[in-house]
Computed example of a mutant assay.
Amino acid sequence: MAALAYNLGKREINHYFSVRSAKVLALVAVLLLAACHLASRRYRA
Rank of each mutant, 00 (worst) to 15 (best):
A22L: 15
A3W: 13
A35I: 04
G9A: 00
L27Y: 08
A45S: 10
A45P: 03
H15A: 05
A34Y: 08
M1D: 07
L33I: 14
V30P: 01
L38Q: 12
V28S: 01
L33T: 12
Y16A: 00
A45L: 14
N7R: 11
A34W: 14
L32M: 11
R11Q: 07
A39E: 13
L33W: 15
R41G: 00
S18H: 05
A26Y: 04
H37F: 15
R42K: 11
N14E: 12
I13E: 07
S18Y: 05
N14I: 05
L38T: 10
K10G: 02
R44V: 00
K10M: 02
Y6S: 05
A26E: 06
K10T: 03
S21K: 11
A3M: 12
V30M: 09
L31D: 03
R42H: 03
R20S: 14
H37A: 05
L33H: 09
Y6Q: 04
L4S: 04
A35P: 00
H15R: 09
F17S: 09
S18G: 00
A3E: 11
A5F: 12
F17P: 01
A3L: 10
V24F: 12
L33S: 09
Y43W: 11
K23C: 09
A45H: 15
R44K: 15
V19G: 09
Y6R: 10
A39D: 14
V28N: 05
N14H: 11
V19F: 13
S21P: 02
L27D: 06
N14T: 06
H15N: 10
C36V: 12
R44D: 08
Y43H: 04
L32P: 00
N7I: 00
F17D: 04
A29C: 13
G9R: 02
V30E: 12
A45D: 15
L8R: 04
L31A: 05
S40F: 12
N14G: 07
A2K: 04
A45C: 15
N7S: 07
I13D: 03
H37I: 12
K10Q: 13
A34E: 14
A3H: 11
L27V: 07
V28L: 06
N7L: 10
G9Y: 03
A35S: 07
A22I: 08
R41F: 01
A34D: 14
V30H: 08
V28G: 02
A39C: 09
V30G: 00
L8D: 04
